[in-house]
Design a protein around this nucleic acid. Sequence first.
RNA 1: GGCGGCAUAGCCAAGUGGUAAGGCGACGGUCUGCAAAACCGUUAUCCACCGGUUCAAAUCCGGUUGCCGCCUCCA
Length: 490
Amino acid sequence: MSIRLHNTLTGNKEDFVPLHDKKVGMYVCGVTVYDLSHIGHARSAIVFDTIYRYFRYCGYEVTFVRNFTDVDDKIIKRANEEGVDTKTIAEKYISEFNIDMGKLGLEKPSVEPRATDHIPEMIRLISALVQKGFAYQSGGDVFFSVQKFKDYGKLSKRDLEEMQAGARVEIDEKKENPLDFALWKASKPGEPFWESPWGKGRPGWHIECSVMSQKYLGETLDIHGGGRDLIFPHHENEIAQSEAATGKTFVRYWVHNGFVNINKEKMSKSLGNILTIREILKDWHPEVLRLFFLSHHYRSPVDYSEDSFGEAQKGLDRFYTTIHEIQEELKRPLVSQSKVDPTAIENCRSVIESFPARFEEAMDDDFNTAQALGYFYDLQTQLNSLLSLSKGRPTEEMISMLKQGLNHFSMKGWVFGLFREDPERYLAQRKKEGLKRLNLTEQTILQLIEERNLARKAKNWKRADEIRNDLLSKGVVLEDTPSGTTWKVK
RNA sequence: GGCGGCAUAGCCAAGUGGUAAGGCGACGGUCUGCAAAACCGUUAUCCACCGGUUCAAAUCCGGUUGCCGCCUCCA
């Protein structure tokens, strides 16, 4: 079964056939480094990280390129505000970005090129475009002439004439056509610049991606990705530049992820609701973020809210609890015989054994992580069911099935970047955070449990329930198990 | 104004021709001193509305309504 993916260019789901048998060249637009990255960047990064991982899981050899835009108006503005040079700003936010991505547990791309390291190549490409008549110099600027490129608008499904009629475009006297875009910009005093045939200047935004993708992946890429908002003008312009220069198809499959809203509102500077990855990670485990995103289709918009993250948190806790319990069960001595109903065992077996196939079927279908996650929940239910059949007296058969389940969590979980923690540590950490939030110490809780257990021994249920209710009202849940009383934060 | 997308249970969310995954919540049961957790079961005769195509549609086509995104920097 091959992977099918939705191609923005055609609007259809297509069978993925790479250019070179089992090799995939994938380019994803990274960030402009002028500020901390936000939850939207996190989504894009997580979506493409998952795609990257799944291709590798399927045995593809993937070259994954994700760039840094380190020269840009916003960086210049920021540098001026802080009275430092643009390089300082860029370096700072590249390192912040790397910290965030590290915490999110993202795989390192194969190459992370920076725009400013590719200026000579950009100048070469721009010159070629001028020579071929696709671009023209105007003062110290060079523009791409959109009218010269017949296919302009094919990705964003726009018509040049209609856009011009739209008249929302600012008239720039330097441009022959208001929709023409800058390949090279003359630098103003105080701005960073490079020498070029057109004088001192700096590259336009789009050219870097054409150059860097071509350099690391060749003239035709298998996959090019990014957020939906990049479809126009960024990716449209990349196509124009690249295809005008090479005469070849630039990208075979365009993949775009949906946006993140915050409490049903668009995230924007003007609304002041930008949620940085830094802030998110103060309150939530990185895997909560991943679980949250992966429970939605990558192309749909998602809405961040305390509640929705709380739900993801709950789900993650439950997975780790199951994994932990399996590990504990594996340590218990085997029994040779069990009175457990064999059909119950067989039900568990069929779900556990069919999991990999179902997981792959879902992922092959345009990376349907939400569906795949549903199968993870099914798997979990069956493993819990098995645990409750075993009740601490596992047979060899049960152990083998539990191990199989654990293996699935580990192997398939890797594709999702989930279940990477030691469950015991994860659960302990959750308790610790909970105590901090409730302003309680473990000592207090353990003392109360001790007191309650004495009451229970004396069959003083009234006192025992009183203690339990008291703790519950503070947010602590007690669970009496055969091996003793445990607690957790609600 | 142009282009694109979405509308599935109380909530979140898969499903693009074969008769509604999964999660949260709720309810009933098993277990338990009672609970909690876990497990089992129930919870959408129906997928915004109207019409059409088809043996068959949430899924395709046409229309209506509502919401959102892009068209300007943006993941």
